[in-house]
């Protein structure tokens, strides 16, 4: 329930489509003709050995990098040339592999900042404290508290973000991303550094996020989590798509085994 934004579409079908995506860094082709599509309500996994281009793909998706060829279309609209904040406004929220919270602010402030893109108050509203502004502020705080509770760190609201335990920082990043009211939640290794119990709780949380109507794109190295959570998985190696499908199928794909175990070509 707390996930659904009024503006959220609920139709079936493809939410994110990526076609012919190339990304170069100088002479290195980091992504080569990558294509895939994510359906609404899916948990879509993105795996591959280190350096396969997973985070590059994330950065291209969220507008941090431009693409050299091809690109994304989200909810029927092309994302080419949009800035990160415009992409967030269209409904893609992300977390970072190396956590990037607003470390010196409280957990609550972090989530409240996430509401920025769905709220309107400007300078004059702030100075005059109009009724609309006050109501919006109250709504922002209420929503932020709900989200802290939703990810299970309600008691931590007033704590400074960078002093939270590691697992809680990951949760807080998810809460902050959810605060932007996303249709697609893109998570970059959310279970990295978590112990087994924390990972299990994360799995439950992500399942709940999906049930509440948000599609998830997940980069993860924890294969147990990926296999137990994802509906479909895309495997990248050296920037190329080498397999896609249900986790069980992908696991048996010889090319995937090769990529991970470095088998002789």
């Amino acid at each position: 329930m707390p996930n659904r934004e009024p503006e959220q579409g609920t139709g079936d079908g493809v939410l994110l489509e990526c076609a012919g995506l190339d990304k170069r860094f100088g002479g290195v082709l980091a992504l080569a003709e990558v294509g895939f599509s994510i359906d609404r309500g899916e948990i879509y996994g993105l795996i591959g050995p280190n350096g396969a281009g997973k985070t590059t793909l994330f950065n291209a998706l969220t507008g941090i990098y431009g693409c050299d060829a091809g690109g994304f279309s989200f909810d029927g609209e092309p994302l080419a040339g949009l800035r990160p904040d415009q992409i967030a406004a269209r409904g893609i929220a992300r977390t970072f592999q190396n956590i990037r919270l607003f470390g010196n602010l409280s957990a609550l402030d972090n989530v409240m900042i996430g509401r920025h893109v769905r709220t309107r108050a400007g300078v004059f509203g702030a100075i005059l404290r109009t009724r609309a502004t006050l109501e919006e502020e109250a709504a922002i705080e209420k929503r932020a508290l709900e989200l802290l509770d939703y990810v299970g760190i309600a008691a931590r609201g007033n704590d400074v973000a960078r002093q939270l335990p590691y697992g809680d920082q990951r949760r807080l990043e998810i809460a902050r991303a959810l605060a932007t009211g996303p249709k697609l939640l893109a998570l970059d290794e959310p279970a990295a550094g978590m112990n087994a119990t924390e990972t299990l709780e994360l799995k439950k949380l992500l399942q709940r996020v999906r049930t509440d109507g948000t599609t998830i794109l997940l980069i993860e190295h924890d294969m147990k989590l990926v296999m137990g959570l994802c509906d479909r998985v895309l495997v990248l190696d050296y920037g190329r798509r080498i397999a896609e499908g249900a986790p069980r199928e992908v696991q048996r794909d010889p090319r995937v085994i090769d990529a991970y175990l470095g088998g002789a070509a």
């Binding site: 406004a89 970072f96 990037r100 900042i113 769905r118």
Partner: peptide
């Protein structure tokens, strides 16, 4: 505050920096 703390994260959260 968000921009001061981390500009990349601020942009990813939808703030037009």
């Amino acid at each position: 505050e968000a921009i001061r703390e981390d500009e990349v994260a601020a942009r990813a959260m939808g703030i037009d920096t």
